[in-house]
Lab assay of single mutants.
Amino acid sequence: MAAAAAAGAGPEMVRGQVFDVGPRYTNLSYIGEGAYGMVCSAYDNVNKVRVAIKKISPFEHQTYCQRTLREIKILLRFRHENIIGINDIIRAPTIEQMKDVYIVQDLMETDLYKLLKTQHLSNDHICYFLYQILRGLKYIHSANVLHRDLKPSNLLLNTTCDLKICDFGLARVADPDHDHTGFLTEYVATRWYRAPEIMLNSKGYTKSIDIWSVGCILAEMLSNRPIFPGKHYLDQLNHILGILGSPSQEDLNCIINLKARNYLLSLPHKNKVPWNRLFPNADSKALDLLDKMLTFNPHKRIEVEQALAHPYLEQYYDPSDEPIAEAPFKFDMELDDLPKEKLKELIFEETARFQPGYRS
């Protein structure tokens, strides 16, 4: 834990890192770190609560700039109880001085990944967590956004079992017609939660990839272990087919990539493993919904509104309290091709509203 900075004593240090967030945020305490930044909790002297502050230093890398800009653009436009918001952003007053960006968010005690390492969940908890994931996802999908990296560590939890989806750095506007060349190379989302079509096709992607990830998360809540822990690309596919069985001819016809289709045709026939054999203690309604989410063919996979209306979630289902976005989200430009200098300018502009004396 960093010592509390005395008023006016300059930035606090946390594990050798400068955290320049005073005077409003003090009493910093280390939480963890990701690929390009550290997260601390801090005391907000204005709202009198502890908050989470993520320090991001992305400006050396085009990919990190892209992810940072995506996350900020999306989260500043989203407003939903099951999606983490941005409360404040701290950065230098000029673009030349801006080396880091500090993002202030609600402090959540833990995440689903940490929880599943230590606790076996009751059916009631599984049901409530799944409902909140789908409630947040309904809003995301209504904005025409794909999260693309749903996994237990991106689901934040607090002691009252509130759940918030975080990390929109890989999110995209849904565009089933656009052929994202190089899709697989830039697709760094965790393999275990990846839909089979991501490994088999490169053309376009749809909201059904997020539903697949939610199915993987439900299976993990039922058993405290990942359902498809593939060691590499082909191993991942083999794990999936080992449980779902061989795809039907109709399902194979959806695979545009001939090499991928021929690979699947070359494999020995596998039978589907019954879900109640894998999860003998699970609620039968939970397994019915799991089956509809972990469907090989993305066109037959359940959609988020149908999933919310499934009998497993009937005690929570309330369409009048499951809000959607006001308007579909649009990125003005494809960020993939922009140089990091341009992305830095866009991050600077996007964060201006939090600067003292800002006038829109």
Results as ranks from 00 to 15, higher is better:
Ala5Tyr: 00
Gly10Thr: 08
Gly10Gln: 11
Glu12Pro: 00
Met13Gln: 13
Arg15Gln: 13
Val18Phe: 12
Phe19Tyr: 15
Val21Asn: 09
Ile31Tyr: 01
Tyr36Thr: 07
Met38Trp: 07
Ala42Val: 04
Tyr43Gly: 02
Asn47His: 11
Val49Glu: 15
Ile53Phe: 14
Lys54Ser: 03
Lys55Glu: 12
Phe59Thr: 00
Glu60Val: 14
Gln62Phe: 12
Arg70Met: 11
Glu71Leu: 02
Ile72Val: 07
Ile74Leu: 12
Leu75Val: 03
Leu75Gly: 04
Gly85Glu: 04
Ile86Ala: 00
Asn87Gln: 03
Thr94Gly: 08
Ile95Leu: 13
Glu96Ser: 04
Glu96Arg: 03
Gln97Thr: 07
Asp100Thr: 01
Tyr102Ala: 04
Val104Met: 08
Thr110His: 04
Thr110Met: 10
Leu116Val: 02
Leu116Gly: 09
Thr118Leu: 10
His120Gln: 14
Leu121Ile: 12
Asn123Gly: 10
Asp124Ile: 04
His125Phe: 06
Tyr128Met: 11
Tyr128Thr: 03
Gln132Val: 06
Arg135Gly: 02
Leu137Met: 09
Lys138Pro: 09
Ile140His: 07
Asn144Asp: 08
Leu146Ala: 08
Arg148Pro: 08
Pro152His: 15
Asn158Gln: 12
Thr159Asn: 14
Thr159Asp: 10
Phe168Leu: 15
Leu170Phe: 04
Leu170Cys: 04
Arg172Ser: 07
Val173His: 07
Pro176Thr: 15
Thr181Gly: 11
Thr181Asn: 10
Gly182Arg: 15
Val188Gly: 13
Ala189Val: 08
Arg191Lys: 11
Arg194Tyr: 12
Arg194Asp: 05
Glu197Asn: 09
Ile198Arg: 10
Ile198Met: 08
Ser202Ala: 12
Ser202Met: 10
Lys203Arg: 14
Tyr205Arg: 12
Thr206Phe: 11
Ser208Val: 11
Trp212His: 12
Ser213Ala: 08
Val214Cys: 09
Glu220Cys: 08
Ser223Lys: 13
Pro226Trp: 07
Pro229Leu: 10
Lys231Arg: 04
His232Val: 02
Tyr233Ser: 14
Leu234Gln: 14
Asp235Met: 08
Ile240Lys: 05
Ile240Asp: 02
Ser248Tyr: 14
Glu250Ile: 00
Ser266Cys: 15
Leu267His: 01
His269Arg: 10
His269Lys: 11
Leu278Phe: 05
Asp283Ser: 02
Asp283Thr: 01
Ser284Thr: 14
Leu290Gln: 14
Leu290Thr: 08
Lys300Tyr: 08
Leu308Lys: 03
Leu308Tyr: 05
Ala309Thr: 14
Ala309Pro: 04
Gln315Asn: 08
Ser320Met: 10
Asp321Met: 08
Ala325Pro: 01
Phe329Cys: 06
Phe329Tyr: 14
Phe329Ala: 03
Lys330His: 01
Phe331Ala: 00
Glu334Cys: 00
Asp336Trp: 01
Asp336Pro: 00
Asp337Met: 06
Leu346Thr: 12
Ala352Glu: 13
Phe354Ile: 14
Gly357Thr: 00
